[in-house]
Every structure is written in structure tokens, then in C-alpha cells.
């Protein structure tokens, strides 16, 4: 048995062990934990597209929306009897639906690059949002609710473990070296016999699949989803996680997802401490201002991302 697979099993066992205690965690912290898991999934999957394959995408929230809405629609249609099996099938179906959307976005990526690709992916995200806003069976502008809360600590982090295992093992394999080659130099990659078309589309399909799963987890955790929750700004949030984590570094990106999920909550709590001087509390209250300043300052001082080239277990050749 190879080391990565052993690690994966250990991680899954840890999730199971953790879920035993998750019931006794303060619900507020539990919420944050689940959101950390969902954000890690989103950031790691976008990192496959941007960081490893070099295709700039601004429509990741769209894939998440497809996953969230299709899985929610399935469990709602299933009715009250929907158990965890229905939930898991719905999650998977949501991932597949998102992957199909990824395929649709991946195809233009064959002809477009850089900024043009960015605007097309952004456009796709907005189109997905627009279609949902006009779809009555999905609640249109009112949002969609009524899903049972199936998502828990175990399922969230089991998905995280599987996704990180899948992505790292893929990009470290000879098969996955195609992604990195496309990022570094497309023309040279073709000259090395790599079908760059296949790899670009594949990155979008896999990235979208994982984002779709994250959407399904989110829908069955919050129990209410709204088209505005999957707007362009949500996509930007995920891009920021990838950039701050250091593009192409899965470990760094996951860490950035944790930091950027916890930071706003931390700042929220800071503003509640009466013993802190008033200006500090006021600043913390305007945490979005702080957050945006942080992004600018980080880019000015550490453009390679917070954690540089940090990576999960890579064997030396």
C-alpha cells in the first residue's frame, strides 16, 4: 500500500473520530468548522484550474451553484424519506452536473487565454446565476429552502480528505504532469506530445466536480440557498484564497482557506471585547475594510502568497 493511500485512510478515520465529538462542539464553532471544510474544497479545486493548469477562472461560484441547486432539488424531490444514501447520491449528482457545466466552460478555454478566458468564465458564472434567478422550480429570486441538514462534520471532512488526496496524487503523477506543462508553456507541452486541449478541459471538469460537491455540502448545511450567494463576488473570494495561499501549492491554498474563513469571525469577536480600545473595536467592526487592505498589502509584500511553495508530501526524485 502506497503512502498517500495510507494517509487518506488515516484522514478518513480521523474524520470519523472527530465526528464523535463534533456533537459536543459549541454550534458556532461547528458552523465555522464546516465552512472551513467547504472553503477548502472550493479553493483546492480552483487551484487545480488556476494554480496547476494556469487557466484563470472567475466563475467558480457558478459551479458551486450548479452543485448546490441540483443536489438540493434531488433531496427535496426525494421527500422526507431522504436518508444519507439519498443525500450522498444527490451530492454526487450535483458534482456531475457541475462537471458538465465545467465541460461547457472548458471548451471556450481552448480558443481563449488570459484575460479573455477570465471574462468568459465570469460570464458563465453570471449566466448560471441568471438562469437560476429565472427558474421557478428552483425558487427563482426567492431562494430555495427545505433541505434537511444532512451535512455534518464527517461528510464534509471526508470529502475534503478525498479531494485533497485526489488532486495532490494527480498533479504529482506523470499523468498529471500534463497540467503543469500546460501552465508553464503550452507550445512546449504540445511539442512534448501532450494534448493540451484534453488537460485544460479536464482541469475545468475536475475542478467543477469538486466545487459542485462543495455546493451540495453547503446547500444541505445552510438549508437555504439564494442565487446572490453564488455571485461573482463569491468567485472572487475563492480566487483570493488561491492567490494568498500561493498558486499551485495545495497545502498553502488550504491554509489560506482556513485563515480567510476564520479571520472575519475572529474580527467579529474582537469587536465584542469591551476592554479593547474603541478605535481597535471600530476597525474590527469594519472587517471588510481590513480584509481588503490585507489583500493589497499582501500582494505588495508577499506576491508569491502567504505560504510560498508549501506543498503536501512530494517525493524527491
Amino acid at each position: 500500500m502506497s503512502r498517500p493511500r495510507t494517509l487518506l485512510l488515516a484522514a478518513l478515520a480521523l474524520c470519523a473520530a472527530g465526528s464523535v465529538f463534533s456533537g459536543s462542539i459549541n454550534p458556532y464553532y461547528h458552523d465555522i468548522l464546516i465552512m472551513i471544510g467547504i472553503n477548502i474544497l472550493l479553493a483546492a479545486s480552483l487551484n487545480l484550474i488556476i494554480g496547476h493548469t494556469g487557466q484563470f477562472s472567475l466563475g467558480h461560484a457558478g459551479f458551486m451553484a450548479v452543485g448546490a441547486y441540483s443536489s438540493a432539488w434531488i433531496t427535496i424531490a426525494w421527500g422526507a424519506s431522504a436518508g444519507w444514501l439519498a443525500y450522498l447520491s444527490a451530492l454526487f449528482a450535483g458534482g456531475v452536473a457541475a462537471a458538465a457545466a465545467g465541460l461547457a466552460v472548458g471548451v471556450p478555454s481552448l480558443r481563449l487565454r488570459g484575460d479573455y478566458l477570465a471574462i468568459v468564465t465570469l460570464g458563465f458564472g453570471e449566466i448560471i446565476k441568471g438562469v437560476i434567478q429565472n427558474a421557478e422550480p428552483l425558487g427563482a429570486q426567492r431562494g430555495l429552502g427545505g433541505m434537511a441538514q444532512h451535512t455534518n462534520f464527517f461528510w464534509t471532512f471526508a470529502c475534503v480528505a478525498l479531494a485533497i488526496y485526489g488532486i495532490t496524487t494527480l498533479v504529482h503523477s506523470t499523468y498529471g504532469s500534463g497540467f503543469l506543462a500546460v501552465r508553464d508553456d503550452e507550445i512546449a507541452a504540445e511539442a512534448m506530445g501532450i494534448n493540451t486541449t484534453k488537460y485544460k478541459v479536464l482541469a475545468f471538469v475536475i475542478g467543477a466536480f469538486v466545487a459542485g460537491i462543495a455546493g451540495g455540502l453547503y446547500a444541505h448545511f445552510k438549508q437555504f440557498i439564494h442565487p446572490e450567494g453564488f455571485s461573482f463576488l463569491r468567485s472572487v473570494d475563492i480566487v483570493v484564497m488561491v492567490i494568498l495561499g500561493g498558486m499551485g501549492s495545495t497545502a498553502g491554498v488550504c491554509l489560506a482557506a482556513v485563515v480567510l474563513t476564520v479571520l472575519p469571525e475572529f474580527l467579529r469577536s474582537v469587536s465584542d471585547y469591551p476592554w479593547l480600545p474603541a478605535p481597535v473595536r471600530e476597525l474590527a467592526e469594519n472587517r471588510m475594510i481590513l480584509y481588503s487592505i490585507l489583500i493589497v498589502v499582501l500582494m505588495l509584500t508577499r506576491p508569491q502568497g502567504l505560504f510560498g511553495k508549501l506543498d503536501f508530501g512530494r517525493k524527491k526524485p
Binding site: 472572487v236 487592505i293 489583500i295 493589497v296
Partner: peptide, 19 residues
């Protein structure tokens, strides 16, 4: 790299909106 500047610009954008 241009992506770095792009993210800085996103930061400035968020700053102007929130500010």
C-alpha cells in the same frame, strides 16, 4: 506577474466599496 496586480486591483476594488 499580471495575476498579482490583478489581485491587488481586486483588493483596491473591495477597499473602495467597503470604504
Amino acid at each position: 506577474p499580471r495575476l498579482t496586480v490583478l489581485i491587488a486591483a481586486i483588493g483596491v476594488s473591495l477597499l473602495l466599496e467597503n470604504g
